[in-house]
Amino acid sequence: MTYHEISLYRLFSQKLLETSPSSPQEIVHHLGAMQAQDYGMAKWAIGSRCGATEKEIEEAINSAQIIRTHILRPTWHFVAAEDIYWMLDLSGPQVQKMTISSAKKYDYDSKKLDQTNSKIEKLLAGNNHLTREEIMQELDIKKSSSQDFLGANIMMHAELEGLVCNGKMKGKQITYALLEERVKKPKTKLTKEEGLAKLAKRYFESHGPATLLDFSWWSGFSPTICNAVINAIKLQLNCIEIEDKIYYYGNQPFINYHLNKNIHYLPAFDEILISYKTREASILLEHQSKAFTNNGIFKPIIMENSKVVGTWKRSYKKDHVKIETEFFNETEMSKKAILFEGIKAFENYLENKIIIE
């Protein structure tokens, strides 16, 4: 297996080679957790894999089929409702250490955070969905740059405790609601070992071929823990060694697609790049600084035949959406016309006219 084949297989395992008939919730469940700090782009990450429109995905989020919360690494993720509790049980405690440490800078220790959670629970009880600003006003936390960091810490702590998650959108504003009012709590819990095994199997089946360090990066667990869990489920996975690295992937049958027209316009922070520690299989080293920065900002990307060839951005106009592209190498207009075909999926998703400039 070559790097090209690894990248092609990842497109397959991430359900990008063909638009899947799956629902938005099924796509999120398949991938385990999808990075979602850029809310608009994160919705397109789902839509690019199943053909659903933005409105349909928004409805799945508003109806709590898909939950947006902090989980795994300390960032926003989309998680399927059926996975939210066991994933929080598994990863919440380790991410919580970071939020508690950060909150101490504002004189909020664990006791004070717990007291604040009690107040938040009372505020949101009865399916009361409030924005963070509304919650902070009720907590008498003034709006300022430093207090905004405190507010983010308070709400992240509440999320990781399993108290709150995203509520229904209030216009264009994101709200919080009580998790147990959105998703019924299961009667049984997984052990930590069971949770780790489930998370690892889900990752390699939906993101493979990937390495131990890729899984460690994505999950937030140490390489030592990840190595132990991979050894525990190794018989349930396939593996291959390339340049002294072992890549693990699922047992699902793979059709070796050789498509001349394999073009994808993918969102910022898409799993196809961000879920791996190193990304050389999908993007040449000399182009990586054009697609993502050292401090973790990822741009929307254009992929052709499983390789990143450029970036794009969109802006909303009165009666259309404008798309601007930037290719890494000089590209002839005839070639661009072929590459521009890939944006039609985004046009269908938005249900809006797209003009490329």
Rank of each mutant, 00 (worst) to 15 (best):
178 L>T: 00
35 Q>W: 00
289 S>M: 09
206 S>D: 02
313 K>N: 15
129 H>Y: 05
187 K>R: 10
232 A>C: 06
56 E>F: 05
85 Y>W: 15
296 G>S: 00
22 S>N: 14
67 I>D: 02
251 N>R: 13
352 N>A: 14
297 I>Y: 03
123 L>K: 04
77 H>Y: 04
196 L>S: 02
282 S>H: 11
135 I>G: 00
303 M>W: 05
196 L>A: 08
228 A>T: 10
285 L>N: 13
108 Y>A: 12
95 V>K: 06
3 Y>D: 09
184 K>D: 13
215 F>Y: 08
179 L>E: 12
317 K>F: 06
25 Q>H: 11
159 E>S: 03
208 G>P: 02
218 W>S: 00
179 L>Q: 07
38 D>P: 04
6 I>N: 01
132 R>G: 12
124 L>F: 04
168 K>P: 08
196 L>T: 05
28 V>Q: 00
226 C>N: 07
305 N>Q: 15
189 K>M: 11
160 L>E: 06
187 K>D: 11
291 A>N: 01
299 K>Q: 08
210 A>W: 01
207 H>M: 01
191 T>Q: 11
220 G>L: 02
217 W>S: 05
70 H>V: 07
205 E>V: 09
346 F>N: 02
140 D>G: 09
4 H>K: 09
319 D>W: 08
223 P>K: 10
209 P>Y: 03
135 I>V: 14
249 Y>V: 02
